[in-house]
Design a protein around this nucleic acid. Structure first.
Lengths: 207, 207
DNA sequence: ACGTCGAGAGAACGATCGTTCTCGTTGTCG
DNA sequence: CGACAACGAGAACGATCGTTCTCTCGACGT
């Protein structure tokens, strides 16, 4: 009974991983409400009983999906930005990351924007996860803006955040051509404007 | 028999109007999948039979909802921009329109982004409506950019579109402070950058 | 006034979905 | 070898939802 854990626990971890992988793929590709637990079970190759042992409810699975997605996405962005040294280029690297992301075969927008639009008002946990994800992104953009020498890092961070979210939405809906490149060009212009460091921004404005 | 149409058609139009009003309010506030036909019936104050006489299915009602929303939103934006004469100010008026919109009590993001995130892949009509709406917005921004003298109106239009969509998303999720004002400041900088070849920055006057 | 048509209210139906339960099997340990 | 716990497969259950059907009643034309 005690040692039953030996193999049981290994299998349980494996099952959890497969369930979460399947859920992430399906929820992201087709939306949360459109995917039933039966489909997750099929894709994960486990039994329903096992599925509910791993995640006690669909809500719990959705929470784990968003949490995992947040970790992966943040790590991928950090990795991409981390390869660049120049502070200004680090800001623009965010948009090169977006460009690569948009080209991935299964790209379907931001999981958090989608989940928020789908369940936001009806599901406080989903809303909180979405806000947390975007809050972390804003914090990262603010840090990059400050390192790049922006006169007002909060302002530039918000502007970059708007460009990022807009590019993601436009890429998902196909409403703009090469949205990442357009966002990058806009970010460059805003970065220039924010770091005309030693004079014009303040000199240009009267009192 | 012919005249039976007289009163019948009046009531039918009235019922259609009330059904569409109720559906628009409910779908926008809580999402499409979260609102059942029974609830639309209650809010509209008609019978289910009448409801299905007005709109043959929920899909048809969703289509009418998006179409009506598109008309109203475009008209409101056109009205707001139309009150401004200066070409550069007309571009920025878009973001003042957003600012007012975001402050309305029932604001809950862009109906088309929400609907697309909710049903996009599963519902081609919804996806088409969303793309049509954003396509019209992009065309309007392109025209404004051209009138304002942008060197590359397509580039500026896309950049402004990204700012607009980003501001809407950020406003809906509450991830940025005063997103409309931030988007406006970014738009101004981009507008400056896009029209600098004609006139130097020093010749510009802040609005 | 009477028969007919259509409207309203809501029951009913079929499908779907989240969740639980049953049952037959298997693998393990004493 | 035999009991027992856990597992897989899938039926079952209760709820919800889109849609249709039934029943009753009131309004209109002749």
């Amino acid at each position: 009974m005690v040692d039953g854990i030996r193999r049981g626990r290994m299998d349980a971890d494996e099952a959890r991983r497969r369930v979460l992988d399947a859920a992430e793929r399906l929820f992201y590709a087709r939306g949360i409400q459109a995917v039933g637990m039966d489909e997750v079970r099929d894709a994960a190759g486990v039994s329903l009983k096992r599925l509910y042992q791993c995640y006690a409810s669909k809500d719990a699975l959705v929470g784990a999906y968003l949490e995992h997605r947040d970790l992966r996405w943040n790590a991928a962005l950090a990795d991409h930005v981390g390869r660049v040294a120049d502070p200004r280029e680090r800001v623009l690297a965010v948009f090169e990351f977006l460009s690569e992301w948009f080209r991935t075969a299964d790209f379907r927008g931001c999981a958090f924007i989608n989940a928020f639009g789908e369940l936001g008002p009806a599901s406080p946990p989903v809303a909180a996860a979405a806000r947390g994800h975007k809050g972390a992104l804003r914090a990262r953009l603010r840090a990059l803006a400050a390192e790049a020498g922006a006169a007002d890092p909060d302002l530039l961070a918000d502007q970059l955040l708007l460009l990022t979210e807009g590019a993601i939405v436009a890429a998902a809906m196909g409403t703009a051509d090469r949205p990442a490149e357009r966002a990058r060009s806009a970010a460059k212009a805003l970065l220039d404007a924010a770091t005309m460091s030693d004079q014009p921004l303040s000199a240009r404005r009267p009192g």
